[in-house]
Design a protein around this nucleic acid. Structure first.
Lengths: 230, 230
DNA sequence: GGATTTGGTTCTGAATGCAAAAAAGGACTT
DNA sequence: AAGTCCTTTTTTGCATTCAGAACCAAATCC
């Protein structure tokens, strides 16, 4: 699983396949293709101006990531987003966070620490400005960057996939301001541990942060689902 | 990433796509398709008796798992198996092992503990009988079963993918008898921790076991590579 | 002699075509 | 009405076809 494409040496010219996979992934994450809905093959072929062959190839690829579910002879659907599944994703991501904490604390170089600080500050500023969308995007960058500090391409790839799955959920609920405030505080502790290169501490704080976020997101999603039923 | 297909409710009838993906994966893992070689599209179409369309769809799927590398306009190759990459895979698998240890210790039920004991004994018997192939297969089952005890579909899927990547390497070198003996001893300690439901202990032993195995496999692979160069 | 152009050939990627399966619709039975 | 059976339409999966890109090798030029 290597979606962020471990930098290929002579910079491949971005094939149509890659473009379709990336764009479709984005559309699913953004919620432009409804969770649980059938994939509108014909419509997508039109919008992309391609035939069914490359589109279906992209769907097969996305099904490996779990964003698409293939039902033999019955078409493909956007994998439904349910709280139970999301809970597993967060739990698994927690396993990655632990690893990331252990490794990032010892593998990050000084420049990277500064870069993380800068991201943290931008995040703080976004919260102060009440820019929810910016905050979410920056927050993702902060954590992905942290994952990169662990210097393991496998982990980075998996982290990206999990982030995408979680981001799908985030796009259907609003950030809870109270949670954002607490989240920022946790980031502060994370940065302190990273600066101190305290491996176990950083790992624990990242795992804890993931758990708290999971609780908040799953609660929101569940409420939204319950609300939607009424 | 869900290769072992999170049990779909009304048992899907195994599509051609799934069959191709599974079979190709197996062929790559078994080394029947040479590492780094170009994918012999025409030949594979013949052997499977299918046209290029479904075959290529399978290749796109396998490229997400990382077993195939797509080079735009230049065909697909069996992803080369190099020690550096393998080292990342082992390291990432270590992150999973940690999680698996923590969860399996508390989520496994009594029957499952017995089942693991049974597997452990069969493994011991295989080693005594000097049945290397059986040993490798049983060993994989032992660890996959352990992963399943953690009750997280995401982790099980990832574990399977990592196992496949590592198994590729194992297929090109022989098991080192000395390592097998030590490995079995580690399994004994693992079983003890599992029985005792000692979370941290089990996690630590699994991680340690993974690290030792990594050292052995990577050493062997590197030697084989060096030997092959002569 | 070595690099470079050029011609043909093969391979790759995507559009199109076609057969089988599933869904949708309708008439008939109870 | 609800249910079954049958017809029609649509969708799905795969084979085939076709255009363009890469590859290879002989011929050409410095």
């Amino acid at each position: 699983m290597t979606p962020p494409k471990a930098a290929s040496s002579p910079e491949a010219p971005a094939s149509l396949h890659d473009h379709l996979v990336r764009t479709l992934r984005e559309m699913i994450v953004r919620g432009e293709l409804g969770s649980g809905q059938k994939v509108p093959e014909a419509r997508l072929c039109e919008t992309f101006g391609v035939s069914r062959t490359p589109l279906r190839e992209a769907l097969k690829a996305l099904s490996v990531e779990g964003l698409i579910t293939l039902r033999p002879n019955r078409g493909a659907v956007i994998t439904p987003l349910d709280p139970a599944h999301l809970s597993e994703v967060f739990e698994a991501k927690g396993a990655l966070e632990h690893f990331i904490g252990l490794q990032a604390a010892q593998r990050a170089d000084a420049d990277e620490l500064d870069e993380m600080d800068a991201l943290h500050e931008r995040l703080t500023a976004a919260e102060a400005a009440g820019a929810a969308a910016d905050y979410t995007a920056l927050n993702d960058r902060f954590h992905l960057r942290m994952a990169q500090l662990a210097r393991n391409g496998q982990i980075i790839g998996l982290y990206t996939v999990f982030q995408a799955k979680i981001l799908r959920a985030r796009h259907i609920v609003n950030e809870d301001p109270a949670r954002v405030a607490r989240s920022l505080a946790e980031h502060g502790a994370i940065m302190a541990a990273l600066r101190a290169r305290a491996r176990l501490d950083l790992a624990e704080r990242l795992v804890e942060h993931n758990t708290r976020t999971a609780e908040a997101v799953i609660r929101q999603i569940s409420e939204a689902a319950a609300g939607g039923d009424r």
